[in-house]
């Protein structure tokens, strides 16, 4: 039991942030018209591409002779960039259609 209490106290900021972000996510998304479900999913998809920062840090702090870490890190950066760039561009393409529609 002690370790749970310790863990909670040590990571208090993190736990607060976690819970509040969960509520914020729910709050932000509720009341979305069905037409926007797909672009919204696609936009959220691009946002979790933020994981690329982790892969940059891997490469950035790997020893230059640690080829396994560098290789995996390189792959991770490529994949993360795909997620970010592809995600935002696809979302933008979907939403362009809506713009055209409104201007009519």
């Amino acid at each position: 039991m002690d370790w749970i209490i310790d863990y909670f106290i040590q990571n208090r900021d993190f736990i607060f942030l976690l819970i509040m972000m969960i509520f914020l996510g729910i709050e932000v998304i509720s009341h979305v018209p069905a037409i926007l479900h797909t672009p919204l999913m696609s936009g959220a998809n691009a946002i979790h591409g933020v994981v690329i920062i982790g892969s940059i840090l891997i490469m950035g702090y790997s020893d230059s002779d640690d080829y396994l870490s560098l290789g995996l890190g390189f792959l991770a950066v490529v994949l993360g960039t795909l997620n970010v760039v592809g995600g935002f561009v696809v979302t933008n393409r979907m939403l362009e259609m809506f713009k055209k529609k409104r201007s009519k």
């Binding site: 993190f14 942030l17 976690l18 972000m21 969960i22 509520f23 914020l24 996510g25 729910i26 932000v28 998304i29 509720s30 979305v32 479900h37 919204l40 999913m41 959220a44 998809n45 946002i47 979790h48 933020v50 994981v51 920062i53 982790g54 840090l57």
Partner: peptide, 23 residues
């Protein structure tokens, strides 16, 4: 984000995690 104590990975990730679940 938790691993690196990186705020933007944490917030972005959790945001998508919860918003995505609701969606």
């Amino acid at each position: 984000g938790f691993l690196y104590d990186n705020m933007i990975m944490l917030t972005g990730g959790i945001l998508v995690g919860s918003a995505g679940t609701i969606l």
